[in-house]
């Protein structure tokens, strides 16, 4: 009798363990997408870290920030959840750890891929000011380097990296700075170049995200700035120390879209 009881309990427990991953798509739970900025096999350290790009030029980074937006997640069984658009704009800043952890509420499920935009979509870039809350409000950027909006070529700077390198030409103040300010959404009524980039990252190889009430999965992405500097196009900081509204910006955007990778997932 006791043994039967034990057996069933065991069976139930075992069973419970198996079916613990029953997801209820009608219930939302938390997931965190973490963006960890690195330089090859080193952690990125603002100002103090010294790195070498594919052109053999040594540089350091004083500022790195970029927009992640229009996020959607896909489950193993092909369900796609798209984060409501207005809740889907995030500004990841290297100098602000909290900004690197994007917390979302998504339907329970085992997620096998994550898609996101690096930048701000063209539609939002043309909306009235009342439809640009939070990180999209140009009044919310501190004055100076951290601005992510061009007023004269009205649109967001999608990706901004600044630093110094001995290879960069000296500016009038004697500093050898490089500045990549990459934007351009394709134009409102007449076309311009378009640097909006979408990225879809598969999670299966390094760990799917099991979103379920009671758990707090964290998907850990790496963003490797060495790949922003080199990849499809190896950036020569002597020739391209300032890249803003110029055709070369497309090369940097084509580099950084490939600079994101999935490292691992915590499913606690």
């Amino acid at each position: 009798m006791i043994s039967i009881f034990l057996m069933t309990t065991l069976a139930l427990v075992a069973c419970k363990k198996d079916t613990a991953m029953q997801y209820d798509p009608n219930v939302k739970s938390e997931i965190t997408l973490e963006f960890d900025n690195v330089a090859g096999d080193k952690e990125l350290q603002l100002n103090t870290g010294s790195y070498t790009n594919a052109s053999g030029q040594t540089f350091n980074v004083s500022l790195l920030q970029y927009f992640i937006s229009n996020i959607s997640l896909t489950t193993a069984d092909g369900r796609v959840y798209t984060v409501p658009q207005l809740e889907s704009y995030f500004l990841v800043k290297e100098q602000d750890v909290a900004s690197q952890k994007i917390k979302l509420m998504v339907p329970e499920g085992e997620y096998t891929s994550v898609s996101f935009m690096i930048g701000v979509d063209s539609l939002r870039s043309t909306r009235p000011i009342g439809e640009r809350p939070g990180v999209l409000d140009p009044a919310n950027y501190p004055a100076g380097h951290e601005g992510m909006y061009w007023s004269w070529n009205a649109g967001y700077i999608f990706y901004k990296m600044e630093g110094t390198s001995a290879a960069a030409p000296a500016d009038p103040t004697g500093n050898r700075k490089f500045r990549f300010h990459i934007g351009l959404f394709g134009g409102m009524t007449a076309p311009t170049i378009n640097n909006i980039k979408m990225n879809t990252i598969e999670l299966t190889a390094n760990g799917t995200a099991k979103v379920k009430t009671g758990r707090k999965p964290v998907v850990h992405f790496l963003h490797d700035i060495l790949k922003t500097m080199g990849g499809t196009t190896n950036v020569d900081l002597a020739a391209n120390s300032t890249v803003m509204v110029s055709p070369f910006s497309a090369n940097i955007a084509n580099n950084y879209v490939k600079a994101f990778a999935h490292e691992h997932t915590h499913n606690e």
Binding site: S125, I129, P138, S151, W152, A154, G155, M188, T189
Partner: peptide
């Protein structure tokens, strides 16, 4: 549909930011 001689601003709401900044 656009503002400025070069059409750099696409929405009237965003126009004042350009001269201010």
């Amino acid at each position: 549909t656009s503002f400025m001689w070069d059409g750099g601003v696409g929405h009237l709401d965003m126009q004042p930011i350009a001269p201010i900044e």
